[in-house]
């Protein structure tokens, strides 16, 4: 596995993503839901909203890094959390 150049932070990142995917799969099996139409005008399920959250968070982090620099990066996660809450509430 050394060729994959693992580090603790990147491993943690993938564990969190995998954990989210597993949690949402269990949620989908236990509590099936019907898609709903939100502010974007498109039908979304919980899984879609997770995808929109993760993809949007990647761009928020990049934009923050570009504008504010690496030192303040943890604050970007706070914005991501607010964004995630907004996506799950309104999208």
């Amino acid at each position: 596995m050394s060729w994959m150049a693992w580090t603790t932070p990147t491993a943690l990142f993938f564990v969190i993503i995998a954990g989210l995917l597993i949690a949402f799969t269990i949620l989908a099996v236990r509590f099936p839901e019907t898609p709903r139409r939100g502010v974007l005008g498109i039908e979304t399920t919980r899984g879609d909203r997770l995808f929109i959250t993760l993809l949007g968070s990647a761009f928020i982090n990049l934009a923050w890094l570009g504008m504010m620099g690496a030192a303040l990066q943890p604050w970007a996660l706070l914005i991501c959390l607010i964004y995630a809450a907004a996506v799950f509430r309104w999208v």
């Binding site: 050394s2 060729w3 994959m4 150049a5 693992w6 580090t7 932070p9 990147t10 990142f13 993938f14 990049l62 890094l65 570009g66 620099g69 690496a70 990066q73």
Partner: peptide, 30 residues
């Protein structure tokens, strides 16, 4: 996954890597 791991490190070959944090992303964005 390997690409993600590489993106946060620097290497001069021989499978030896050095942690570089967000450095490459910051460089590229500018």
């Amino acid at each position: 996954m390997t690409v993600v791991n590489y993106a946060f490190q620097d290497t001069f070959g021989n499978n030896v890597f050095f942690w570089n944090g967000l450095g490459w992303f910051e460089d590229l964005l500018h």
